Simulated scan of single mutants.
Amino acid sequence: MTNTRLIDLIYPQNKIVSIVGTSKNAGKTVTLNEIINQAHEKGIRLGLISTGRDGERRDVLTETEKPPVYVRRGTIITTVESAVKTEYAGIEIFRVTDYNTPMGRVVLGRATEDGNVEISGPHSSFTIKEMCLEMQSLGAELVLIDGSLDRRASAAPYVSEGTVLATGAALARNINGVVEKTMHIINTYSVPMIEEEHIRDIAYNAIDMGKSAVIASDGSITYPDTMVSLQSGDIISEYLKEDTAYIVLSGSATAGTLKDILLNRKSSFKIIAKDSTRIFIPAADFHILQKMGMELRVAENINIIAVTVNPYSPEGYYFEPLELLDAMRNAVPHVPVFDVLQGE
Results as ranks from 00 to 15, higher is better:
residue 4 T to P: 14
residue 8 D to E: 12
residue 9 L to G: 05
residue 10 I to M: 04
residue 11 Y to T: 03
residue 14 N to A: 03
residue 32 L to M: 14
residue 35 I to F: 08
residue 44 I to G: 00
residue 45 R to K: 09
residue 52 G to V: 05
residue 56 E to D: 12
residue 58 R to L: 13
residue 71 V to N: 05
residue 74 G to L: 01
residue 75 T to S: 03
residue 81 E to Y: 06
residue 83 A to H: 14
residue 92 E to Q: 09
residue 93 I to G: 15
residue 95 R to W: 12
residue 96 V to Q: 14
residue 98 D to F: 15
residue 106 V to Y: 02
residue 112 T to P: 02
residue 112 T to N: 04
residue 119 I to R: 03
residue 121 G to C: 08
residue 124 S to V: 07
residue 124 S to K: 10
residue 129 K to P: 12
residue 135 M to V: 05
residue 150 D to H: 11
residue 151 R to F: 15
residue 160 S to N: 10
residue 162 G to E: 07
residue 167 T to W: 11
residue 168 G to Q: 12
residue 170 A to N: 02
residue 171 L to H: 01
residue 176 N to L: 09
residue 180 E to L: 11
residue 186 I to E: 02
residue 195 E to P: 00
residue 200 R to S: 02
residue 206 A to D: 00
residue 210 G to N: 03
residue 211 K to T: 00
residue 216 A to L: 07
residue 216 A to G: 15
residue 216 A to E: 13
residue 219 G to H: 07
residue 220 S to E: 14
residue 223 Y to A: 00
residue 224 P to Q: 01
residue 227 M to W: 14
residue 237 S to C: 02
residue 250 S to W: 07
residue 267 S to P: 06
residue 268 S to C: 05
residue 278 R to S: 07
residue 279 I to P: 09
residue 282 P to N: 09
residue 285 D to M: 15
residue 291 K to L: 09
residue 301 N to P: 13
residue 304 I to H: 05
residue 304 I to Q: 04
residue 305 I to H: 06
residue 306 A to V: 04
residue 311 P to I: 01
residue 311 P to F: 04
residue 322 L to W: 12
residue 324 L to D: 02
residue 324 L to H: 04
residue 327 A to C: 08
